[in-house]
Amino acid sequence: MNMQRREALKSTGAMGLFGVLVAAGLITPELAHAAWDKAAFEAKSMEDVLKALGAGKPADSKDVQLSGPDIAENGAVVPVGVKSALPGTEFVAILVEKNPNMLAASFTLPEGTAADVSTRIKMGQTSNVYALVKAGGSYYMTVKEIKVTLGGCGG
């Protein structure tokens, strides 16, 4: 009887259970302070991202502004910014429709932090870019098309 093998099997079994519990949200991995939202970042369609974020059906809002170039010459570095005029904006996410995984980045804004975040993203091709915002318990969204002349996702 190979005891080592038995031990190994036991521990992988335990790991599997741990993984399931983590996925179900029952345990948060102690390494991460605010566990990375794997499901949302690996989602490939708009519905899946919204579902993973628990966003339901966001309403279009003019109070959410997405800034960025109309035409990005280099898809590897596309500056985008999200601004929200909605009171109590607590969450901001940037989604790129035609990227392999739609969700690019998300931000949690504690009270006192302005709903005005800028970053740079990669875009594989011309696509709609969405800014998703949570304010006062509801989700709002705005969209902008950014044309890309040179893709930023390898190739």
Binding site: F41, V77, V78, A104, A105, F107, M123
Partner: peptide, 14 residues
């Protein structure tokens, strides 16, 4: 600020 990044954030993130 607490942020989560996917791989679609540009190299040397800003």
């Amino acid at each position: 600020l607490a942020g989560q990044f996917g791989p679609a954030v540009a190299k040397n993130p800003y």
